[in-house]
Amino acid sequence: MGRIHVVSDSGSDLPKEIREKYNISIVPLSIQFGDDVYVDGVDMPTERFYSELKNGDRLPSTCQPSPADFVKLYEEIAEPGDEIISVHLSSKLSGTYQSAVLASTMVSDISVTVVDSKLASIGIGFVALAAAEAVQNGASKEEALAQAQKVIDNLGVYFVVDTLDFLRRNGRIGKAQAVVGTLLNIKPILTLDDGVVAPVEKVRGKAKALKKIRESIRQYQEDHGGKKLRIGLTHADCLEEAQRFAELLKQDIDIHDLYIDYIGPTIGVHVGPGTIALLFHPIE
């Protein structure tokens, strides 16, 4: 009986200590600034990415890993007879999932199951984490996949961007296309609907948007029988704001565990600086 490995991508924004604790391997996407290509987390640290994004006049884009990148990692971490659960960015936002699926057909003697999380940022991370936790508790691959699926089905997502320009320019704006009101400082609260960006509500100002999100999470907890929540609070270079918001959340919400971390370059390219994202699901 071989071992089960969990793999994700750099869109998962998983804190380093979690990746290490649960042995979750990451396949990085690459970040292109003009003709310069960097690898997320390798030669493009998050802090530098945001300072380039803010100061530089070159607008970046992302590029999915190639199937060969996946094959290389799969063969590196797994021995013949091992199994792999590979959890990735929404297939409607990135071709990463497709590359992984292709790669899964190119490795022999390793059984790879690729999961379309239909999510982004630490939402993907939570799906991978659920699978990894199950594996660590001795679950079979099928059981671990069932745990992962449960997180996908339950995960709540809200995020607020400073401007819709980044989503629009990179073609990821989805159903938020119709959001109007460019003359006023209107902040749309956004979510992911079946893997695609969709608007929830429009409000004036980020503070109000965050307040609404707080109310929505409180309602979500009520709807889920008051179960404790695992919450990911990811931010695009606005740590202080995220920490202040976390303090407020702690007042209202019964929290199982809370992770505050950067939105890494992979997602940061598409949402832009100032974005705050909340991803959460109940823990049994």
Partner: peptide, 15 residues
Amino acid sequence: SLMGARGNSGVILSQ
């Protein structure tokens, strides 16, 4: 091309 496949179109091209 497989090693260096970039983006959706690059992956398809490599195939």
